[in-house]
Every structure is written in C-alpha cells, then in structure tokens.
C-alpha cells in the first residue's frame, strides 16, 4: 500500500471502487426502504433474497455454459433475467407465507417472522448448495487506464462501468414506475394511508405483493453484480450486505428512494476509503459507526421526512 507520490491517483481509484460498491448497496437498500415505506416493516430477509439472487445468477451462468451458450453478453443478460424472475417469486412467496398472515397483528410479529425467514433462507441455501465458497471466473476482464501517476495506474474496469450503468438504468426504470405509473401511485397511496387506499377500490394486498416482487428483483440484480464483481459467493453474503444496505437506507432516510441510493453510495465510499487508508479489518466498524452517528444526529436520515403527528 505504498502510495507515496500518487495520492491523487490512489484516491481516484478508491472513488471508483467505492461508487461501484455503493451502487450494489443502493440497489439492495431500495428494497428495504420500499417495504418500510409501504407497511412500516423492516424486511430482514431482504439481504437473503440478494444472496439467493447471486446464487441463481451463478446457477444460470454455469447452466448456460453447460448447454453451450458461450457468448458472454447473451449469457449475462439471460442469467440476470433468470435471477431477477426467480427472486421475484421468492419475494412474493416470502410476503405471502411469512408476513401477510401477520398483518394487523402487533408490530413486532412480522419483524420476528422476517428474522426467522432470513435464518430459514440461509440454512436452505447452505443445505442445498453446500457451505463452501462458490467461485466464478472473471467474465468481464479488462478496462481502461484513466491515469498513471508515479507508477500507480488508475483502472476503471469494464465490469465497474457495467455495474454503474446497469444500476442507474434499473433505478431510472424503477423511479419512472413509482412516479409515473398507476402501480407506483397505488404504492405511494398505500404508503400514506392503507385503509383509505382500500376504500378507493385498490387491492392493497396485491399492491404490497408487487412491492415485494419489485424489491426482490432489484435485490437479485444487486446479487448478480456482486457475483460478477467479487467472483465468489457463499450462503452468508446476504447477512452483512443486508445489514449494510439497511444502514444505507436508514442513513439516507428510510422510506425515501433517492435516500436509499444516496445512503448506499455513502456507505460504499466510506467502507472503501476506510479500507484503503486505515484498516480493512475495521471497515464494517466504520460503516456501522456511521449508522450509530446517523441515528443520534439525524434520526430521519439525510433525505427522510420527519413525521409530523397531527393532534
């Protein structure tokens, strides 16, 4: 880690790495924030849906290679679609089985159910796929060298560009969906007043189901990116990534979609810079300290709205 004389280049490299990681966190955080917004519940199983998305991507890539689909872009696109579709089913089923029966019950009940669901999913994958780390060879090697300062080359990988671009595209589609379509309007209406929304003839259960489906698909996209970026996954990746994304959602202001992405970017950057300049071992400490500080000084997060209670 000798970066004397190449301070700027070194920092720029960390910025690139941090944004890439932050995008992945942001995608997962959107799922947390959406579900919280609509039913006021933290879906702790969301990180595990991300993990399942990564596994499904790996299974699809291996399967496609086995049946002779060797064109990398095609294989990637198909694997991404496959992972998103199946994860969406998982999201739907989780809500149906673990949360819907508890709606109207006391507030902690679905939360406990979510923790149970998270443990169930982790063990399920551990049993079915084994506990060992699954590797994937780099599918998108190479990149461009942005600058070279005293022998330190700043690299921007094709993969990093792809991650950032796909994330931005997915978020753009998602933002459009929430702000411009009837489904998005119904979701926002549910967020503000579930009962009133039902009184206007909207099927609230279905709207909530679709929120889980969309959140799970976004988590699968994040899982896909994670798999490509790190090249190895195991059944436990959902836990830490999930908690980080949750931190991101809280930091950005839970319930706020732009806040989730902003929070994800900040957590990604903090973690990367901390690892680069202080210690890799303590990067999680850094990320979670931010959560603690945010909760103390900014309880509603960066872009969150303070809840004003009418009396």
């Amino acid at each position: 880690m000798n970066h004397g004389g190449s301070i700027l280049a070194y920092a720029l490299q960390q910025l690139i790495n941090g944004v890439t990681l932050g995008m992945i966190y942001g995608l997962i955080a959107v799922g947390y924030t959406m579900v919280y917004g609509i039913i006021g519940m933290i879906n702790f199983a969301h990180g595990d849906v991300f993990m399942i998305g990564a596994f499904l991507s790996l299974i699809a890539l291996v399967g496609l290679a086995a049946i002779g689909v060797t064109a990398v872009p095609l294989a990637l696109a198909m694997a991404l679609l496959f992972a998103a579709a199946i994860s969406a089913l998982y999201g739907w089923a989780i809500e149906r089985v673990a949360y819907r029966p508890l709606r109207g019950s006391f507030r902690l009940a679905p939360l406990i159910s979510a923790i149970g669901m998270s443990i169930t999913l982790e063990n399920y994958v551990q049993v079915v796929q084994g506990a060992r780390v699954k590797p994937l060879m780099p599918l998108i090697p190479g990149g461009i060298t942005l600058m070279n300062q005293n022998g330190f080359a700043v690299r921007l990988g094709w993969l990093q560009m792809l991650i950032v671009l796909v994330t931005l595209l997915v978020l753009a589609i998602f933002t459009w969906l929430v702000t411009r379509t009837p489904l998005g309007r119904a979701m926002r209406a549910c967020e503000q007043d579930l009962k009133m929304t039902a009184l206007l003839g909207i099927d609230v259960d279905r709207t909530i189901s679709l929120t889980f489906v969309i959140g799970a698909a976004l988590a699968a996209v994040a899982g896909f990116m994670f798999l490509l970026y790190y090249g190895s996954i195991d059944f436990f990746i959902g836990f830490i990534a999930g908690v980080k994304a949750f931190t991101a959602a809280v930091l950005g202001g839970i319930g706020s979609l732009p806040g989730a992405v902003l929070g994800g970017l900040l957590i990604g950057l903090i973690e990367t810079f901390w690892s680069a300049y202080f210690s890799v071992q303590y990067k999680d400490v850094a990320a979670f300290s931010i959560l603690a500080i945010a909760l103390i000084f900014l309880p509603t997060g960066l872009l969150g709205r303070a809840e004003v209670e009418k009396v």
Binding site: T181, P182, R185, A186, A189, T197, L200, G201
Partner: peptide, 11 residues
C-alpha cells in the same frame, strides 16, 4: 389514484 383499477387494467 381513485381511478387506479381502470388505469391498472390498461397499463
């Protein structure tokens, strides 16, 4: 929002 069902069917 009050016209959701008609719009949703069309969308």
């Amino acid at each position: 929002v009050a016209q959701h069902n008609r719009l949703m069917a069309a969308s």
